[in-house]
């Protein structure tokens, strides 16, 4: 029994099969580009009314008043920015510490369990964070953290006012916990990508481990770590449920971190399905458009830095 396919078959069924399968996958790849395009289009179209009506003042107006049809997004921009920066300033040192611990110090047998447990932090749903924030974190902040802060740093404007628990401080804390896994994971990969020769060069100079980290690792990994920071920031900006449940949801700008605030994602979550007229809905759409644009930009920059550094490897697992 021998199989003797005819060799000469122009436009053979094989080629046709391969071409059509390739085409099928290509169509879906293009559809992905199309989806992003469509997203931009829908968001633009949805926010058109608001864009026309308010122009740039949408970004600088602090008055959000659905009753009088005046929409200024400044309080939300402010709340999002401050809570995210607060989160980052806590999460960054912690994440860097964990990443360095894992890559430079932890024995082999500890590496897997610790990275796994830190990754679990990312697996917990946002709404559960919110629940925990509302019933555990915020009360703790009110009874323990805020009294301590106002006793020792009360002369600073950031730590003044009544201790409510719910507010900017709690939102920042909960966001810090939530972005720690991604900042850690990416820092870890970036640090692991530092060549051994760099480490050895520093050690050969008689550096201690910390000096080796300071001398060889951190400078080498600098742009990658910036990428990790930007990705973390992007996550914090767009985080919705947990923030909505603990930030206090008051559209006001206050210097004190004890005061309640509001974030862009939260106002969408709370008011979108209750927006009763077109302009209201459009203003919320514009906030979504802003959120989309900013996170897109941050992610774009972050990926750019990570790709340049490690050839598309780092930042792929989170």
């Amino acid at each position: 029994m021998t199989i003797r396919p005819n060799l000469i078959r122009p436009q053979s069924s094989h080629q046709w099969q391969d071409q059509s399968f390739r085409l099928l996958t290509l169509v879906f790849a293009l559809a992905m580009l199309g989806l992003v395009g469509l997203m931009v289009l829908e968001l633009l179209q949805g926010s058109w009314l608001s864009l026309l009506r308010f122009g740039w003042s949408f970004l600088t107006d602090a008055d959000w008043d659905p009753v009088f049809e005046n929409f200024g997004a400044l309080p939300f921009l402010y709340g999002t920015l401050i809570s995210s920066l607060l989160a980052l300033s806590i999460a960054l040192p912690v994440s860097l510490g964990i990443a360095l611990f894992l890559t430079e110090i932890a024995p082999q047998w500890l590496y897997r369990p610790i990275s796994f447990v830190v990754e679990l932090l990312a697996a917990i749903p946002s709404v559960v964070y919110g629940l925990w924030g509302l019933f555990v974190l915020a009360p703790w902040v009110r009874t323990h953290l805020q009294p301590v802060l106002s006793r020792f740093f009360g002369y600073l404007p950031f730590f003044q006012g009544p201790a409510l628990g719910v507010g900017m401080l709690s939102a920042g804390l909960i966001l810090a916990v939530m972005i720690t896994p991604i900042v850690t994971a990416i820092s870890r990969e970036v640090i692991m990508a530092v060549p051994t020769s760099q480490r050895e060069a520093a050690l050969a100079l008689g550096a201690t481990r910390w000096e080796m980290i300071r001398l060889a690792i951190l400078p080498y990994a600098r742009s990658g770590l910036l990428g990790a920071v930007l990705l973390g920031l992007g996550r914090a900006l767009g985080e919705t449920m947990a923030v909505t449940m603990v930030i206090g949801n008051r559209p006001e700008i206050a210097i004190s971190l004890f005061a309640p605030g509001y974030s862009m994602a939260s106002v969408i979550a709370n008011e979108f399905s209750e927006a009763t007229y077109a302009l209201y809905l459009s203003a919320l759409m514009e906030i979504g458009l802003l959120l989309f644009g900013v996170t897109m930009l941050l992610n774009f920059l972050a990926r750019l830095m990570l790709w340049r550094l490690t050839g598309a490897v780092a930042g792929t697992r989170e």
């Binding site: 992905m32 992003v36 997203m39 968001l43 969408i268 979504g288 996170t295 992610n299």
Partner: peptide, 23 residues
Amino acid sequence: VRFLNDVLTGIPSIVTGMFVYSL
């Protein structure tokens, strides 16, 4: 496509919700 895919992971899920709402 690869780059956009990476960027897409960072889009806030609430924005995806708005998109599907209007779509």
